[in-house]
Design a protein around this nucleic acid. Structure first.
Length: 704
RNA sequence: UGGCCCAUGGUGUAAUGGUAACACUCCGGUUUUUGGUGCCGUCGUUCAAGGUUCGAGUCCUUGUGGGCCAACCA
């Protein structure tokens, strides 16, 4: 019975307050106002899901309004792409509208303002106007044309409209206040002369209205109750309201602008200008390149509309600057596809297996479910024969018992098929394995119900029958940038952080024959590998798959660790627990013995074990533990060796900026003991030496 | 010599004066014919200092830090 009360974001709260005050529910109306000068991206999805979501929860209309007041940048191509993306996301607008629909009304209102002495034509150059405008800290001065007569203004504006003037020679300005602390109130431009053809109005106009003059009035015309935009428009609100004051009648609804923070995603850029740069300069193959954070790129990559809507929902809405971890987006698509994608088998890096006791020329068709754990997926027939492909990574001649896969004299289950045992290998002259010879247990067929089929074998491999296999192309993607926030570095161009390995082609992939009927856009889980979809470039004779996102691979982590490292694990876990206690304890007399124990234990830890950990740690506890281990190693390890220096240096850089003062102290202490780490963080350390909140840190910094 | 906005875990968001919560990430454990999924668990000085209050993440003041504002762009 108890219904979970979902908390409202601050915009929903504003709406609820308005409803509680005097706004009638049926007056609620929203809009999504893209400028058709680029493609929609995942940041826009936040706004789309917000506005259209509001429309759904309040059963209110949502208009799609193209903000097309600048004919120089806007194109029909973008209009079409934007409409397609919104529909694909699953939303339907009440009306498709254009700011340019209101050019006539806007013009009439402008004339009215001139007549009221609230707008004037300025003949100065843009440079002169900019100079008079002042700066955020200095007031502007009035234009010499500010006090023209109404008649003269009317005549000039008429000439502007008739196309009698050159571009840039005249503008219409609102007469507000050149000394306002808000730059937007310093006689803002309402109209400029632009002798350009517009994608909708053609050559009817040679004057075009500016954003501020257009947006609020368009909201008013459409009777939008809540005009939601991003935070950089906050300072425009005063002007938005001023313009509204000029035309709003008491009996009509007066729109309200409210702002929220735009959504940023780690390891990518989100501004249209930068995305356009990536497209135009060939860093990616178009707006819908699967590496792009555009809606069209994500769609081509294999993302579902549901996953993007879910992402927008869980990422939330607020007014704080943010960089959302791309892992959250990846979680959303994996979560969706895990429930919806059929499982099939594909081998990305094939090696041949010959089952020596399987009759030559024999083939059988095994009924394999598309999803073992969920109803309704159905099944298909998968061919099995004497020669198969498995992944090269799934075989080792020798391996320890943590390796659950195929090794010589070891047994493994072939998914949906038989248990096989590797007997020997055939190699080329370079010693590379060409064939793995195996025997199979003919009574062990999956699902046959025999005692042999129920045997527990530790590993299960995916496979493809060699004579039946279909060769396809697979495209593997990695993040486009190697830096978490590539455009946050003031001194550096964001393109310096482009990942050179963001796209890999693999033309030597074998898939099961059922996939020959796959259509463009179809999504699958390639068993044990990841989620893939059929790319737009795919043809029946040459199938192309995109890797949407890989499956979690916990083996990769285990495999990286040596035997030594695994022995270290328990020690490190112990230290981690102690570090947790340390953070929790309130008294120094609790902490001191903890430190002593940690240092004692730390000497047992090998530096190599630590290296892989420090690159993934992110909690205070982990940072503190790893720093204490590092601090105990001074005598044993040569930190100047670049193999150690680089990862540790990066780690220290992060640690110095952590909120927790114990973490910062340990990091500073480490630098103090190992001065070669000072170089890259010198600015930060200088700043800390005067400004850190913690006096112990400042004291420690004074020592070096 | 400015105006405005923001500050809660590694990340993103809740808590609407009354026990700081949820999700992701990370790290453990467990289940498993996907080393996937699922399930369980570990990890917090609410930026600082004052003030108001029986009680402050929340209200006030002052700092500090970050962001936005000087296109004939939106």
């Amino acid at each position: 019975m108890s219904e979970e009360k979902k908390s409202l974001n601050f915009l929903e709260q504003i709406i609820e307050e308005d409803l509680a005050a005097d706004l009638q529910r049926d007056k609620l109306r929203f809009r999504f106002p893209p400028e058709p000068n680029g493609y929609l991206h995942i940041g826009h999805a936040a706004s789309i899901c917000l506005n259209f979501g509001l429309g759904i929860t309040y059963n209110a209309p949502v208009n799609l309004r193209f903000d097309d007041t600048n004919p120089a940048k806007e194109e029909q191509e973008y209009v079409d792409a934007i409409k397609k993306d919104i529909q694909w996301l699953g939303f339907q607008w009440a009306n498709e509208l254009y700011s340019s629909d209101y050019f006539e009304q806007l013009y009439l209102w402008a004339v009215q303002l001139i007549k009221q002495g609230k707008a004037y034509v300025d003949d100065q150059s843009s440079e002169a106007i900019a100079r008079q405008k002042g700066t955020p800290t200095e007031a502007g001065v009035n234009s010499p044309y500010r006090h023209r007569s109404v008649e003269e203004n009317l005549a000039l504006f008429e000439q502007m409209k008739n196309g009698d003037f050159e571009e840039g020679s005249h503008i219409l300005r609102a007469k507000i206040d050149m000394t306002s602390p808000n730059m937007h109130m310093r006689d803002p431009i309402m109209y400029r002369v632009l002798n350009k053809s517009h994608h909708r109005t053609g050559n009817t106009w040679s004057i075009y209205p500016m954003y501020d003059w257009t947006h609020g009035e368009s909201d008013y015309i459409e009777q939008i109750s809540h005009s939601i935009c991003t935070l950089e428009f906050k300072s425009h609100r005063q002007l938005y309201d001023w313009y509204l004051d000029q035309v709003c009648s008491k009996k009509d609804l007066r729109p309200k602008q409210r702002e929220f923070a735009r959504r940023n995603l780690s390891y990518t850029v989100m501004s249209k200008r930068k995305l356009l740069q990536l497209v135009e300069e060939g860093y990616v193959n178009g707006w819908d390149d699967p590496r792009m954070p555009t809606i069209s790129g994500l769609r081509r990559r294999g993302y579902t509309p549901e996953s993007i809507r879910k992402f927008s929902e869980v990422a939330g809405i607020s007014k704080r600057d943010n960089v959302t971890d791309v892992a959250l987006l990846e979680f959303c698509i994996k979560d969706d596809l895990n429930k919806t994608a059929p499982r099939v088998m594909a081998v990305l890096n094939p090696i041949k297996v010959i089952i020596t006791n399987y009759p030559e020329g024999k083939e059988e068709f095994i009924d394999a479910s598309y999803n073992d754990y969920s109803e309704g997926f159905g099944s298909r027939q998968v061919p099995f024969s004497r020669e198969l492909f498995i992944e090269r990574e799934d075989f080792r001649e020798e391996a320890n018992k943590k390796f659950f896969r195929l090794k010589l004299n070891g047994e493994v289950r072939l998914k949906n098929a038989y248990i096989i045992k590797a007997t020997h290998v055939v190699k080329d002259d370079k010693g590379e394995v060409l064939e793995i010879h195996c025997t199979y247990d003919k009574d062990s067929l999956s699902g046959s119900g025999t005692e042999e089929s129920q045997r527990k074998v530790k590993g299960t491999l995916h496979w493809v029958s060699k004579p039946h296999a279909v060769k396809v192309e697979v495209r593997l993607y990695d993040r486009l940038f190697i830096d978490e926030a590539p455009d946050s570095h003031k001194e550096k161009d964001f393109k310096e952080f482009i990942n050179p390995n963001s796209l890999k082609f693999n033309n030597n992939v074998y898939v099961e024959p059922s996939l020959t009927s796959a259509q463009i856009g179809d999504r699958f889980q390639f068993q044990r590998l990841g989620y893939f979809n059929v790319d737009d470039d795919s043809r029946p004779e040459h199938l192309v798959f995109n890797q949407t996102v890989p499956l979690r691979d916990s083996w990769a982590k285990i495999d990286q660790k040596s035997e030594n490292k695994q022995a270290d694990d328990s020690t490190i876990n112990e230290i981690l627990a102690l570090a947790g206690k340390y953070l929790k304890s309130r008294e120094d007399n609790e902490r001191l013995p903890l430190i002593a124990t940690v240092f004692e234990l730390s000497r047992k830890v090998e530096i190599n074990s630590l290296l892989s950990l420090i690159q993934s740690g992110n909690s205070n506890k982990e940072y503190l533990a790893y720093l204490m281990i590092l601090n105990s190693q001074k005598l044993v390890v040569d930190f100047s060796n670049t193999k150690y220096f680089e990862p540790i240096d990066k780690f220290i850089g992060h640690a110095l900026q952590m909120n927790n003062s114990y973490v910062r102290f340990q990091a500073v202490d480490f630098v103090g003991k190992n001065l070669n780490f000072k170089g890259n963080h010198i600015e930060l350390l200088k700043e800390m030496s005067t400004e850190d909140k913690n006096t112990h840190i400042i004291e420690r910094l004074k020592q070096f």
